[in-house]
């Protein structure tokens, strides 16, 4: 564990609390892509299958994994059951099969072993790297977003960005080589946030509304 990874994980945690706060205070999931949230459930469940093996890393690791799985499923419940009327599927139109299929193929080509843990792990890494796309696509379509929603996406972007210095730090301080799958997918994932991040910094953090240029 190092400073960047801890800060990244805390940022990831914060993003989930921001999302829960947004849904509960506005009593609405307007502006949130249900498809992206479904993808995160798939990501967490396929990545954390090692929970079933009881190959224990640390209490921190186990608690965080259980929290990510539990909270992501709870968010689906909020969107589909509790606040269902506020969810508008007509603007959440990204075709996620175009993400799931290629990620499945990639995980069969690039993995750390043909086992029931490694292939889903690899799949989840590739899928996480593109899971935000339905959300960004929705933002693109509506052209604007509630400020709290942009804080949610920004916290997710910060989490991904912080994992990059974490890997650089680990490269120089540990002797494990490079987790090429995680690093390449992680860089792709971080790059997807750049456009959003630019508008977030130049508009939202200056006190303006998040609006895309026409």
């Amino acid at each position: 564990m190092n400073f960047f990874r801890l800060l990244g994980d805390l940022s990831h945690l914060a993003s989930i609390f921001i999302l829960l706060h947004k849904i509960q205070t506005t009593r609405s999931c307007r502006g949130i892509s249900f498809k992206t949230q479904v993808l995160y459930v798939v990501v967490f469940v396929t990545r954390y299958l090692d929970l079933l093996t009881f190959q224990f890393h640390s209490i921190y690791n186990t608690v965080m994994k259980l929290f990510f799985i539990g909270s992501s499923i709870y968010i689906l419940y909020l969107m589909r059951v509790r606040f269902r009327p506020t969810n508008d599927p007509s603007i959440d139109t990204f075709r996620i099969e175009y993400l799931l299929g290629p990620c499945a193929v990639l995980s069969l080509i690039f993995n750390y072993g043909y086992t029931w843990l490694e292939i889903p792990w690899s799949f989840s890494i590739f899928l996480e790297s593109v899971a935000i796309l339905p959300q960004l696509f929705m933002l693109q379509r509506t052209g604007e977003a509630e400020t709290i929603t942009t804080h949610y996406i920004a916290a997710l972007g910060a989490y991904r960005a912080l994992y990059i210095p974490n890997w650089i730090f680990r490269y120089f301080t540990e002797d494990n080589g490079v987790d090429a799958i995680a690093v390449v997918a992680g860089i792709v994932q971080t790059a997807l946030y750049v456009d959003f991040g630019w508008i977030y910094f130049t508009k939202v953090l200056q006190g303006q509304k998040f609006e895309l240029p026409a």
């Binding site: 990874r5 994980d9 990831h12 090692d50 890393h57 690791n61 965080m64 994994k65 990510f68 690039f110 993995n111 750390y112 072993g113 490694e118 792990w121 994992y163 974490n166 494990n176 080589g177 490079v178 987790d179 090429a180 799958i181 995680a182």
Partner: peptide, 10 residues
Amino acid sequence: VQAFAAHDEL
């Protein structure tokens, strides 16, 4: 690909 992996990251 060689097994990296502690998979100790979240």
